[in-house]
Amino acid sequence: MKTLEELKAIRERMQGQIGVRSESATQTRVVVGMATCGIASGARPVLTAFSDMVQTKNLANISVEQTGCIGLCQYEPIVEIMEPGKDKVTYVKMTPEKALEVFEQHLIRGQVVGKYTISSEMPK
């Protein structure tokens, strides 16, 4: 069983590392819609996938956040990626598998995954 002693040990180790988090001006934000429409469509595993990947790779310049409904319920789960100095990219109908792809292609390599963005869903 986890004990509070273990948590104390984590604190000792982490203490020196706080403050290395980036300023908000250089922070990339991954925002997942977590209102009723998002949750019912499967936003929880999508958010977990992004958080796990960002935390595992210890990417201090990326923050994974939750938001409410932005009024496009039919496209949920929706993930918005906001990078400083760039246009916001909106991914729709996300799954944990698509999240992995977006993480690797967009967040790591800097290439937008066009086939999952909202513009790919709009009538041509």
Binding site: E6, I10, R13, M14, Q17, S51, Q55
Partner: peptide
């Protein structure tokens, strides 16, 4: 209780989150 031990170490830090 966790916060008292962790001080300013946030809950979303990898090791804390795993814990």
């Amino acid at each position: 209780e966790f916060r008292e031990i962790l001080g300013d170490v946030p809950f979303d830090m990898f090791e804390v989150s795993c814990y």
